[in-house]
Simulated scan of single mutants.
Amino acid sequence: MAVRVKICGITRLQDLHAACDAGADALGFVFYEKSPRHLTVESAAMLVRDLPPFVQAVGLFVNAGADFIETVLQTVPLDLLQFHGDETAADCMRFGRPWIKAVRVNQDTDLLKCAADFDAARGLLLDAWVPGVPGGSGERFDWSLIPPDLSRPIVLSGGLTPDNVAEAVRRVRPWAVDVSSGVEASKGIKDAHKIARFIANAKEAS
């Protein structure tokens, strides 16, 4: 199975083109004001309009109000919603769009229960648990904490880089990998060479 690759935190048109040219399957657009990769609704709409066919647009939200998410959906043609906060399954389902739920993993995380609680999700995005940070920390977690019999597809995130993504794909065998800071020149600014290496290494390992 060829692993899918999502490049998250796209803020510039040139980064969008670099990711698509390198073979990204999905791009992430962040609607969380505390993130250095945050976009306005108008900026996100402009970027998503430039996506080529068959590359998914993913909108990332953290405890966002339903009215705000509805406003985004009226303007930005998102294919998938990604929830990174304390949202319940009912919160995630109310928009009638496919969605995934992010889970921050440490030794106390019951991933089997998470998979059962969010059984309507297209998958679980597994990220590192860092106090006070809902995601995008660039920290790696212990992959051995992932049970082999999760009922939902895994999107592996957290501290992935062009140098370790092949190992991650071989060891975890996730459905997809997700990277943001690991392919950046600076916060919110992607590095086209790192993107190309990341995608090539991930695909080759799978």
Rank of each mutant, 00 (worst) to 15 (best):
F54E: 14
R140E: 08
A45F: 15
A121C: 10
D142C: 03
T88R: 14
P162R: 05
P53T: 08
P153C: 08
K34A: 15
G138C: 06
V58K: 00
A45T: 14
C92H: 11
G123L: 01
F83I: 11
Q56P: 10
A116Y: 04
H84A: 01
S137G: 05
D108Q: 15
V165F: 01
R140K: 15
V30Q: 00
D110Y: 05
F54T: 14
H84T: 03
A24C: 06
P147E: 12
T161M: 01
A44W: 07
R49Q: 13
Q56F: 12
N164I: 11
V130E: 04
T40K: 11
W129F: 15
L27M: 05
G159A: 12
F68E: 11
F29Q: 00
K34R: 06
L73M: 10
N164Y: 10
K113G: 08
Q56R: 09
D149A: 07
L160N: 00
V30Y: 03
A45E: 02
F68H: 13
G138A: 06
Q82A: 13
T40Y: 09
T161S: 11
K101R: 02
G65D: 14
E70H: 13
I154M: 05
N63F: 05
L73A: 07
T75F: 08
S35C: 09
L160F: 11
S144P: 11
S151R: 07
R49L: 13
D149I: 15
V55N: 02
I69S: 01
R97D: 07
P147W: 05
V165S: 08
L39C: 03
V48F: 03
F95S: 12
N63H: 06
L81S: 04
A26W: 00
V105N: 03
F68L: 07
G132E: 12
T40G: 04
A116V: 15
Y32L: 09
R49F: 12
Q107Y: 14
L112N: 13
D108F: 15
L39W: 03
A166L: 05
G136P: 00
G158E: 02
L27P: 00
G23S: 07
S43T: 15
L112Q: 12
G65P: 11
G135P: 02
L145V: 01
G28T: 06
H38K: 03
D108R: 15
S137H: 12
M46Y: 15
L145N: 10
V72G: 06
I69R: 08
L80Q: 10
W129C: 15
I100S: 06
Q82T: 10
I146D: 08
M93S: 14
R104I: 09
T40I: 08
I69G: 01
R97Y: 10
D67E: 12
Q82C: 05
C92V: 14
R104W: 02
L60F: 06
K113H: 14
I146F: 14
P77R: 09
P147H: 03
V62I: 06
L126Q: 02
V58I: 07
N106L: 03
P36C: 09
S35Y: 01
G132V: 04
D142R: 04
W143H: 02
A120E: 09
F54G: 11
D163Q: 13
R97F: 09
S144H: 08
L39S: 01
R94F: 14
L39G: 03
A166K: 10
R140M: 10
G132F: 11
G136C: 08
L111D: 11
V48H: 00
R104M: 04
A66Q: 12
